[in-house]
Design a protein around this nucleic acid. Structure first.
Length: 135
DNA sequence: CTTCTGACA
DNA sequence: TGTCAGAA
C-alpha cells in the first residue's frame, strides 16, 4: 500500500473534517455538490473523507479566504470529474458578475484555444483571481 | 450524539 | 451560508 493510496483512504467523518479545515458542514457539503471534492459514503450514507479530500478543502479554504468564489475555485483547482485548472483568465476581466455556468462556458471556450499548463497553484492565476472572481 | 437532505423568517 | 426540521 503506497502513500498515494493512503492519501485516498476514506478515513474521517465530516465532524473531524470541520475541525481540520475550519469550514462549516454546510460549506463542505456545498463544495461536494460542486464537484470540488469527492468523499466516499459509508453503508449508512455517511461521508468519509480522505487526506486528499482534506488537503483540497484546505486549498479551497485559502481561496475562499482570499475572496474567490466557486467559479474562481473551479478555475484554479478544476473539478474532480474533469474540468482541469485554467491559467489565463484575462478574457473575463470586464465581466465581474458572471453566473457559474456562464463563466464555466466562457473559460472552457478559452481553454480550447489557449491550452494552459494545469498548474495546481499558478502564482499568476492566484494573483489575478481576486480581481476577477471577487464575491 | 452525529450526520443527511431539503428548504428558507 | 446559517439554521431548522425530520429521519437514520
Amino acid at each position: 500500500m503506497d502513500n498515494n493510496e493512503r492519501r485516498k483512504q476514506p478515513l474521517f467523518p465530516i465532524g473531524i473534517v470541520k475541525k481540520l479545515t475550519s469550514l462549516s458542514a454546510r460549506q463542505i457539503r456545498y463544495y461536494e455538490e460542486h464537484k470540488l471534492i469527492q468523499p466516499t459514503r459509508t453503508e449508512g450514507n455517511q461521508r468519509l473523507f480522505s487526506f486528499e479530500d482534506v488537503d483540497r478543502l484546505l486549498e479551497i479554504k485559502e481561496l475562499i479566504d482570499q475572496g474567490v468564489n466557486i467559479a474562481g475555485i473551479k478555475t484554479v483547482l478544476g473539478t474532480i470529474d474533469g474540468t482541469p485548472p485554467v491559467a489565463d483568465i484575462k478574457e473575463v476581466e470586464e465581466k465581474n458578475d458572471l453566473s457559474d455556468k456562464e463563466l464555466h462556458d466562457l473559460l472552457q471556450a478559452h481553454i480550447q484555444e489557449h491550452i494552459a499548463k494545469p498548474s495546481m497553484n499558478n502564482p499568476l492565476i492566484q494573483g489575478q483571481l481576486h480581481r476577477f472572481f471577487r464575491r
